[in-house]
Nucleic acid binder design. Structure first.
Lengths: 260, 260
DNA sequence: TCCTTATGCCAACGCTGTAGACGTTAAGCC
DNA sequence: GGCTTAACGTCTACAGCGTTGGCATAAGGA
């Protein structure tokens, strides 16, 4: 296995294809679209590329390495469709939606990659951008990191969740989506009063992503914290209850972490 | 395949095991712990059960059916460790953390199931409980459904994301966790000023789950909306900007949905 | 005790990811 | 232009996978 940058001899395949990392990644994305998230196999990828299956292993450390490269590509695409305006709130919202949308444009790929951290260049670029927006907006470093953490994990988590729903093959997805009008809407009010009372609302809402809503709430919370910090800065007063990211949450986070 | 409730003839395995859905689910959970999230195979499960691999197919519709049953089991366990107090905010927080914790107690299983909706009894029970808490707290049906949607998807999304990190085998996880002290902390301030400036804070924070923080923010937003609704109820005034779940978000959600 | 059929077992099919040896051919140098 | 060298595509093989259909058998109702 040789890193892409050091490749010198580009020798065509028996069928005439000249391979490269990006060609393989793009072919893999197309295959994921056509054959579903379980349809990315070395052999199929080989035939699609006009090359022997094992050739892929000269470019990536197993299919897992290819998967990480795909994630990096999706992150890069998100960044490319986004442009800063200077309004931190609008910029973060747009960036979050861009990441989410970029992954959901390839749900079958997103399922495989959204919960992996690659640490590759474009991903780092996104992180740097987010931190820059927050620090530029006047957040303290501590707050900026806290909001960044919540922001990026929220985007990835919802990308993975929503991609999972979209990645189901049509038939299965239809069945899943109809669950709110079939299973849930038919529960009797005697045993499930609250579901029964809200069934139409549920059917209308549950097949959409909750991400935009939650993202809005998160940014509201961040804005409140920013305002609070400014107020404290002027008055020298202690922090208010506010955003719910205080001591108790840190303890929860620690507890959660040590669960494994 | 016969539903568990109608099973009459319980015939022991050649090795003496008497099978049942719950025995299989529990064995599968144990195997996931021992062999990782890719370690649940029909053949291995068979040997672990002291039975032929194909026997599992008499109890579940393929490994996929087994997977859904595992998800249902985890959801049930979350509900069992939780008790209502009457304080809607505390109750929701505790329930969210319980779901998150239940999945993270079996990260390898959570990876497989957290983004699947099963529509099975214990899952419905959780949904009914959440809606009950919200409607009991005085939310309108519309608001209750909106908060419910955000709440449950948030819990599942973070369960999946955090489980993904925990499910990596020790060696890989350690490498992942050290990325914040190795890769990120070493980026030069000239190219990545914001990451460089916050590197210690990042290293301290990024290996914990952001879920408790985000959950807190979500509940804060919900509380604000509840207070706003009450105020509107008294004064008859229109809704304020507030929680960020207004018209614009609904449009975003629709846009996102039609992406596929 | 007998009959039915649920249920466990077996064998087989067509896949999978990946390792290692092999041979061809492009690149770099003179 | 010709030579050398090793990068890179190809071939072969292995061990394992999910799943299915047929078969034997024993459990439970009569």
């Amino acid at each position: 296995m040789v890193p892409e940058a050091e490749r010198r001899r580009r020798r065509p395949t028996r069928q005439g294809q000249v391979l490269s990392e990006t060609l393989i990644v793009e072919t893999a994305l197309r295959m994921l679209h056509e054959h579903g998230s379980a349809g990315l196999t070395a052999r199929r990828l080989g035939t699609a590329l006009g090359a022997d299956p094992s050739t892929v292993y000269r470019y990536f450390a197993g299919l897992d390495g290819l998967t990480r490269a795909i994630g990096e590509e999706l992150m890069g695409r998100a960044l490319d469709t986004w442009a800063a305006t200077g309004d931190w709130r609008a910029d973060l919202r747009a960036l979050g939606l861009a990441i989410h949308a970029s992954y959901l444009a390839h749900p079958q790929a997103a399922v495989l990659t959204a919960s992996r951290v690659t640490g590759r260049p474009r991903e780092i670029e996104v992180d740097e951008t987010i931190l820059g927006i927050l620090r530029g907006a006047g957040f303290t470093d501590t707050d900026a990191v806290a909001v960044y953490h919540a922001f990026i994990d929220l985007a990835l988590a919802f990308a993975a969740l929503d991609a999972g729903a979209l990645a189901l093959k049509d038939e299965a997805r239809e069945r899943d989506e109809q669950m709110w009008t079939s299973t849930y809407a038919r529960l009797p009010g005697t045993t499930h009063p609250h579901i029964a009372a809200t069934a139409p609302l549920l059917a209308e809402r549950m097949n959409r992503s909750a991400y935009p809503t939650v993202l809005g709430t998160l940014l509201d919370g961040a804005a409140a914290r920013l305002a609070g910090a400014h107020r404290r800065g002027r008055t020298g007063q202690g922090r208010s209850r506010g955003s719910g990211a205080g001591r108790a949450d840190a303890e929860d986070a620690e507890r959660v972490r040590s669960l494994s």
